[in-house]
C-alpha cells in the first residue's frame, strides 16, 4: 500500500488519482501511525517551506518519516516534499528541514536573462530533464523529456553525487535526487501527463 502524507497543505487528490489511474491503491493519511505500516510513502508539498515543516511537525510526522526512510522503504518527495528532505531553506527566513539529504534550498536569482528576456520567478511550466544518473524510477523516461514545474526555490545538495537529473533555468539546477530508497523530484509527476504517470508507476513497482 502507498501512503500519501496529508499534513494539511494543498492538493493531494491529484497524486492519489495518478496512482489510481495506473491501477495502484494509494491512501491519503493524516495519521502518522499509518505510515509505519505502509509499503511506500509519498510526501507531496504545496505552499511555503516554513508552513509545510511546521505542519509536518505538528502532525507528528517527522519521527515516522525518518524511521521509514532509515528502514529502506521506497520514499518519494515531490516539490516542497523534496525540499523538506534537505538541511534548510531560505524561504521567508532560514528554516530547518528534515536534514535527510545534506544541502540547502535557495531562491532563483532575480534578474536572470536569457536572449534578452527576463527569466520569470516562479518558474512555471514544462522544462526538460537532463540525466546524470538513471534511477529505476525513471525507466522509460527519455533524456530531454518535458515535466511540469512550479517553484521559486531549488535544492543544492552538498554531495552532488545524489543528483539524478538537472534542468536548465538560466543555469543547471538539480531537478531530482536519488539516494538508496529516496527519490525526490522538484517537478510534479502527477501533473506531467503520460511521463509523470510512468514515473508514478515505476515508483509503485520499485522493489
Amino acid at each position: 500500500m502507498i501512503a500519501i502524507i496529508d499534513y494539511g497543505m494543498g492538493n493531494l487528490r491529484s497524486v492519489q488519482k495518478g496512482f489510481e489511474k495506473i491501477g495502484c491503491d494509494a491512501i491519503i493519511t493524516a495519521d502518522p501511525h499509518v505510515l509505519l505500516t505502509a509499503e511506500r510513502i509519498v510526501l507531496p508539498g504545496v505552499g511555503a517551506f516554513r508552513d509545510c515543516m511546521k505542519n509536518l511537525e505538528q502532525g507528528g510526522f517527522v519521527e515516522p518519516i525518518l524511521k521509514v526512510i532509515s528502514e529502506g522503504r521506497p520514499f518519494l518527495g515531490i516539490c516542497v516534499g523534496m525540499q523538506m528532505l534537505f538541511s534548510d531553506s531560505v524561504e521567508f527566513g532560514l528554516h530547518s528541514g528534515l536534514n535527510v539529504i545534506p544541502g540547502h534550498v535557495l531562491r532563483f536569482p532575480d534578474q536572470m536573462t536569457v536572449a534578452g528576456e527576463k527569466l520569470k520567478v516562479p518558474q512555471m511550466g514544462w522544462n526538460q530533464l537532463s540525466f546524470k544518473r538513471r534511477p529505476p524510477v525513471f525507466d522509460g523516461v527519455n533524456d530531454g523529456s518535458n515535466v511540469y514545474f512550479v517553484h521559486s526555490y531549488y535544492v543544492k545538495p552538498t554531495d552532488s553525487s545524489v543528483i539524478a537529473t538537472t534542468t536548465d533555468y538560466g543555469f543547471e539546477f538539480c531537478s531530482s535526487v536519488w539516494r538508496d530508497n529516496i527519490i525526490a523530484t522538484q517537478f510534479h509527476p502527477e501533473k506531467s501527463q503520460a511521463i509523470g504517470l510512468r514515473i508514478l508507476k515505476n515508483f509503485a513497482e520499485l522493489t
Binding site: Q123, W126, N146, D168
Partner: peptide, 8 residues
C-alpha cells in the same frame, strides 16, 4: 529551457 505554454 522552459517552454512557452499554450492554455485553452
Amino acid at each position: 529551457m522552459l517552454t512557452k505554454r499554450i492554455i485553452p
